[in-house]
Design a protein around this nucleic acid. Structure first.
Lengths: 200, 200, 200, 200
DNA sequence: AGCTAACCGAGACGGTACGTCTAGTCTTGCG
DNA sequence: CGCAAGACTAGACGTACCGTCTCGGTTAGCT
């Protein structure tokens, strides 16, 4: 018989990649349309034309699904390109964070992820791991700057990195991601030279 | 008169402060015992021996109640004492934030609040207002430092302030609030003198 | 004194007849507009611009108020007029019942009363008393007929009376109060001559 | 495997008859123990160890559930047996009604049903349909009597039937179901031969 | 080639919490 | 001291999702 109905069937005793894709796609759409509060497994299942158990089979919790949706988006990878100067590197990094989160999709997903992590230990763990890796990667920028002699050798790379990310988080989580050039420059100036008055 | 019966009565056509207090107290207890996910209006009502409509009469949403609970706790005032030096002031500020949030109570409430703000616009708004006020207050420390000549006159006070708060948020929201003295000192060093290598 | 303000004041330590009237009037209006399910003390209080305790002070329960509303309407008294013949008397009686209940007001109130009586013993008692009195009054018609020699002397007046009232109840409670002349005549024929075939 | 746990599970994407039975049974028990006012969906759900949505899934309203409970009880069938004489048939019918309603269960349910029908149109409709069918069934007794020549050919069967049912309703709804033999005989006499004095 | 094991969509299940509604009680402040 | 007003506790209402379960059907891969 011809397959006319829009329903997917099983493809045997193995995970159906079509279903997985449909679920992730639906999850993202639901998250964007309804926000975190509208992001329910039921809604995702309905939109993906999938059964709830199919979702629970592959993602143990709502948080896990959320995390997966985020990872899918992470392919817009932060490359930490070497611009030759530490200021250029950091500015690129900060701008890439802001740009990525300003795209409605990614920002909303990440916000949801952070929110979920405050209640769900598994998400918290996953987020921690993800952030640690990110700090490590970003830390390379600092280490490059130290190698070039631009950056104080006693500056702890991971703390510097965290200050940048924390600043971006702060803006994302309080809806203040829109920054003008001057603000960004002011932040970089502070980070590079500190607040101490050199005259004093 | 001796209060024997466990039931509170109405005190007429006006808000009963006893009920308000009982509800806030119960809300805090419930939040601590069950976490954000266990924080339900129903549970609060039951614990406070209050009717649900009484809660909804005075707090339009779960988030409003949560925020109110936090506000009550905030009165453990961050005084931004003038220690005489900018380094002393900032260290005091950062430590007071960390200490407050390390007390299980306050930290958990604030985490919940931030999480809720990611889904609920009303909470988001309320949190934004609260944070702006806090940045303004903290900014005074920087302005004092500038008056003393310790701090660069072109350092934007509110951005400095935000860097500190953002760093604390970052630690709170990723369960890394436990910091040793060295880490705090390293952070303050970076903030005061920046990462630029003065040798270069 | 001219009553301009929509609010009534107390007239001292005694029952205020204005309030009583306003409450009864409001109760009737509410009952008609919202049906039995919409008939709440709260709604009546609001409409009468009366406080709930004022209602509870004078009527111990919702049912009592309902009963009072009905009694107020009973002034459209069934007179059991002497038409000279038993058939005329009974027809008048049946028609007066039907007519009264067909007026939306009285019918709705009586239906509500019967309904309430199924759950509330006080209403049940009140209804029973009322119905007994009614049967007694209507029984007089039968007794008059017996005196005239029209009616079998061994016909139990109160059972006859009840058969008529029960028939009307049945129609009222199942929304079948609309009867044509033929139906009424058929009922009276049955009541007067029975179903037994005189030929047999 | 042995069924040890007291919880019922789903049996797939279809109605679970076990749940249905448990809910109906619980509904009846709750109705009897608490009366109509104590008959809440919540109480039924708790007693049946069922979720509220399970009840609402299959019964659109409290009234629907109530009606269903009554229907189950009705299967204590009124058989309208042919006793050979019209008087015997009618007596059997009346006694079977009285007996059924005198059993606390059935009577209480039916009273509740009638009460509910006065406020809720859906119940009203359902009750009307049920009663019409009942009148039709009972009408057969009269038609049999007419065939035998016992009953006047011009006696409208459904009106006769209604007079009997209405009389029983009247007694049920006013707590006067206890009747002695004499009363029943008197009623039947009136129904059969009417009130007209044959001497006149 | 048949059997089995795991997959699939679908949706019912027992539950929990939601936010609203009404009941009936109580107190204030005005007159 | 009665009145309008309205807050109080209590708990039912009907709805939305949760995470689990079973159904009936499908297909791949092992026997």
């Amino acid at each position: 018989m011809v397959e006319k109905k829009p329903t997917r069937r099983s493809i045997g005793a193995q995970r159906n990649p079509e279903s997985e894709a449909a679920i992730l796609e639906a999850a993202e759409a639901v998250l964007l349309e309804g926000g975190l509060s509208g992001f329910t497994i039921e809604a995702v299942a309905k939109r993906a034309h999938a059964g709830k158990p199919t979702i629970y089979r592959w993602w143990p919790s709502k948080a896990a699904l959320l995390l997966d949706v985020y990872h899918r988006h992470k392919h817009s990878n932060f490359t930490y390109i070497d611009t030759g100067t530490i200021r250029g590197d950091l500015k690129d990094y900060l701008l890439s964070l802001i740009d990525a989160w300003r795209k409605e999709t990614t920002g909303a997903i990440f916000r949801s992820l952070v929110a979920e992590a405050q209640a769900d230990p598994a998400t918290s763990e996953a987020l921690a791991t993800y952030m640690a890796e990110r700090r490590r990667q970003a830390g390379d920028m600092i280490r490059r700057g130290q190698a070039r002699g631009e950056v104080r050798p006693d500056a702890e790379p991971e703390i510097v990195t965290e200050m940048i990310a924390a600043f971006a988080w702060s803006r994302l989580l309080t809806n203040r991601l829109e920054m003008n050039e001057a603000e960004i420059e002011a932040f970089l100036d502070l980070l590079l030279t500190g607040i101490r008055n050199p005259q004093a």
